[in-house]
């Protein structure tokens, strides 16, 4: 099993607003890295004396251990000038980076993990939605996902049917688009950017681009941290620790449509760092 495909992918390694000249010790796929600013004040990532490629985007610094073929993905919707961009900050989770993304894609956990906020135990049904791998972009997309939510966002006044779209543009990143309570017709953008430290440890950098004129940034950060910390306690207890990519190991309850598509896509691309290919 080679890690080369994932070494060539882009990963978030820090908030641009948090970079210092002193640098911060971190890790990427088992290798020690230092993330900070160089002598000219430009963001830089060092790996044992080697300068890694960098991209500054979505409030974060991104890097790669290898030679990425493609530029880092974009989120055109997030460029709208009236959106509030929210750096939620890092949360460390003892789980496989791929599991962190898979959990984010799985809407069926809402009523049980985010009870009375993103879901209700009386309304656990998920409708029949559409999942595809978009050929040109080579991304996993789930669309027309509809779900009843008691409090869909910090800005939601009460229960509403929310529509979601999920997108996986990189092996450890997911972008979700959801109904925006104050602006019908627009989508709120909520991202989960995951930095794989090891196969069973990751730093998660949630990031959001929202339309919300009433909540303070702090309210928005708290809302998202509340949600993500509820996930964290579930993620740290998943068994097996690594994400099984062997179809025989897929249990029908956990593996909803998006999750199946994500796992197949990972396997096809050899994005297997944090995955388990045979039963252990």
């Amino acid at each position: 099993m080679s890690d080369q495909a994932m070494r060539d992918a882009w990963f978030p390694v820090g908030l641009l607003s948090g970079l210092t000249r002193a640098g911060t010790a971190s890790m990427l796929m088992g290798e020690d890295i230092t993330v900070g600013l160089d002598d000219t004040g430009a963001p830089s990532v060092d790996c044992g004396g080697r300068k890694l490629p960098t991209v500054e985007r979505f409030g974060h610094l991104w890097t790669s251990l290898g030679a990425p073929e493609k530029d880092l993905f974009t989120i055109p919707e997030a460029d709208h000038p009236e959106r509030t961009l929210v750096d939620v900050g890092v949360v460390r989770v003892k789980c496989s980076p791929l599991r962190a993304v898979e959990n984010f894609l799985d809407i069926a956990h809402f009523p049980f993990v985010h009870t009375d906020i993103l879901g209700e135990e009386d309304h656990p049904e998920v409708n029949n939605y559409k999942v595809e791998v978009r050929k040109d972009e080579d991304e996993v997309w789930a669309t027309k996902v509809e779900f009843y939510q008691p409090q869909a966002a910090a800005s939601a006044g009460g229960g509403i049917i929310t529509e979601y779209m999920y997108r996986v543009p990189a092996p450890t990143c997911s972008v979700l688009y959801k109904t925006c309570p104050p602006r019908p017709g627009e989508w709120d953008v909520i991202c989960l950017f995951v930095q794989p430290l090891t196969e069973e440890l990751c730093d998660v950098w949630p990031w959001m681009a929202l339309f919300d004129d009433t909540s303070t940034i702090t309210d928005l950060i708290h809302f998202q941290q509340l949600i993500f910390l509820q996930d964290r306690s579930i993620l740290e207890n998943q068994i097996p620790k690594k994400l099984p990519l062997d179809p025989a190991l897929e249990t029908p309850t956990r593996a909803d449509l998006t999750s199946v598509a994500y796992r197949r896509w990972l396997k096809r691309h050899d994005y297997t760092y944090g995955a388990q290919l045979v039963a252990e």
């Binding site: 009870t115 009375d116 135990e121 509340l226 910390l229």
Partner: peptide, 19 residues
């Protein structure tokens, strides 16, 4: 709070009505 769960999964959230 995140990481501390209510005892009975079906007990209603006492603050839910205050929203």
């Amino acid at each position: 709070m995140p990481g501390i769960h209510r005892l009975h999964e079906l007990a209603p959230d006492p603050l839910a009505g205050d929203a």
